[in-house]
């Protein structure tokens, strides 16, 4: 823990030195300059709106991806006939690169909905895989128990399969959060009106290097915060259901 803090401090200090001396050229400004942009009161409103738009897209996409992923996995578990088809469909959707899918989404859903849609697709696949494997992982002796207690498939699902799958499911929720953020930002590159991705794209095209870095830093911080929050949830689920 302490060693990790030292490592991060060393990295940030190194970044500052490299930026100040200009060792890597103009494309790597010092950390202080990047933080100054991030804290610039003149830009606060712009950043707030962008952050709101991006987080909104992440929340919508993540929520939908979560619901669809879990429901699809549950359907594949309860109706074994559907399992193969669901597996293949999910894999195919996942195998299409976001940049190839985005134009299709823009045409079908519109520019404003594309960030949420890409966030949702990224979330869906991870949640589908995590929930499926969690549901399949119920111990055989608990299945025997439910069978001798006279439980049907649905009762078994509610009483043992789903609770036993929760730690894996929450672990999937944690893994999916950064993916949802990436999906939303890439989605914003394809002509959304606001969002962190829009600022990143504009800053790059206009060569506003400190602004570009500040948005990247912001993205990293959001991603780590989500990862950390869901990590706490994962720990809780693992304690309770294992």
């Amino acid at each position: 823990m302490l060693l990790g803090a030292w490592g991060i401090a060393l990295f940030l200090a190194g970044w500052e030195v490299v930026g100040q001396t200009g060792a890597l050229g103009m494309s790597c400004p010092p950390l202080s300059a990047v933080l100054a942009v991030l804290a610039d009161p003149a830009r606060a409103l712009l950043f707030q709106r962008a952050l709101g738009a991006t987080l909104g897209a992440v929340a919508t996409g993540y929520g939908l991806g979560l619901v669809f992923g879990v429901v699809a996995a549950a359907a594949g578990h309860l109706l074994p006939g559907m399992r193969g088809g669901l597996d293949r469909t999910s894999s195919v959707i996942h195998a299409i690169p976001s940049v190839a899918l985005a134009p299709l989404l823009i045409l079908s859903l519109g520019r404003q909905a594309t960030p949420a849609a890409l966030a949702g697709i990224n979330t869906y696949f991870i949640l589908y895989v995590a929930t499926s494997s969690g549901l399949a992982g119920t111990s055989p002796v608990l299945r025997d128990l439910m069978s001798v207690l006279g439980a049907g498939r649905w009762m078994r699902f509610v009483r043992i399969d789903l609770p036993a799958a929760l730690p894996t499911l929450v672990s999937g929720m944690r893994m999916a959060a950064p993916g949802a953020l990436i999906g939303a930002i890439i989605g914003e590159w394809f002509g959304a009106s606001r969002g962190v991705g829009v600022i990143i794209l504009n800053a790059m095209q206009n060569f506003q290097i400190p602004l570009l870095w500040s948005m990247v830093l912001l993205t990293v911080m959001i991603s780590l915060t989500l990862f950390w929050l869901l990590g706490a949830m994962q720990l809780g689920a693992a304690r309770r259901y294992r």
Partner: peptide, 27 residues
């Protein structure tokens, strides 16, 4: 039917009362 297995087969997330009450809920 009542069965006790070699492996206790208790649900790890339920306490003693809820584990013993499980057959009622399943029924």
């Amino acid at each position: 039917l009542g069965v006790a297995f070699q492996d206790h087969a208790l649900l790890p997330w339920l306490d003693v009362t809820a584990n013993i009450g499980l057959p009622f809920r399943v029924a």
